[in-house]
């Protein structure tokens, strides 16, 4: 490869990288804000107001006050006592706000192989969904997706990050009828 074509490659790669730089993360939703589809379905963007966290029926309230995620221990999909409490509150909110559908995202930390972690994330999402079903939420309002270790909410090579990355996030998707 000549020098010219190499530089061309570099320039092109840089340009593409710049264009595709994804939305900056770090908002309170973290990985959860990624939503299902994440804008992949071109043109089919759902718009919704987060609202005031003090409004118990707002999505902001769901995310910040109730808590949109539960955590797991290494290689496990068992819900903790604390996790169940969070899900109980989620179930109450979902019952009170029947117009919303949810996507449950399962995630794993980076201390496993890629494909196994997809399975593990699915297991966590499923455990979460099954619990919500047991709390009376209809299965047809819910969908699961696993991101494996692809979407860490904290990207540090330390235990504290891995602990928060092993999670299932309940993402409330816009209006139910949208």
């Amino acid at each position: 490869m000549s020098l010219t074509s190499k530089s061309l490659l570099l320039v092109a790669a840089l340009a593409l990288a710049a264009c595709n730089n994804p939305r900056p993360g770090g908002d309170f939703g973290g990985g959860g804000a990624d939503g299902f589809g994440g804008g992949f379905n071109d043109g089919n963007i759902q718009t919704g107001m987060l609202g005031d966290p003090n409004d118990p029926n707002s999505i902001a309230h769901f995310q910040q006050r109730i808590g949109d995620r539960v955590f797991f221990t290494t290689d496990s999909s068992s819900l903790s006592e604390e996790g169940r409490a969070t899900l109980n509150a989620q179930a109450r909110w979902l019952t009170a706000n029947p117009q919303f559908a949810i996507v449950i995202e399962g995630h794993a930390d980076e201390r496993g192989t890629r494909e196994y972690n997809v399975s593990l994330g699915e297991r966590r999402a499923n455990a979460t969904m099954q619990y919500l079903i047991s709390q009376g939420i209809s299965a047809n309002r819910m969908r699961t997706v696993s991101y494996g270790k692809e979407r860490p909410v904290e990207a540090c090579p330390e235990q504290r990050c891995w602990d928060v990355n092993r999670r299932a996030v309940t993402v409330v998707s816009g209006g139910r009828t949208s």
Partner: peptide, 17 residues
């Protein structure tokens, strides 16, 4: 599962990736 919890290396994380 002899060692279920992979211990992280003790060293502090180097600068953010």
């Amino acid at each position: 599962q002899a060692a279920p919890q992979p211990e992280p290396e003790p060293e502090p994380a180097p600068a953010a990736p």
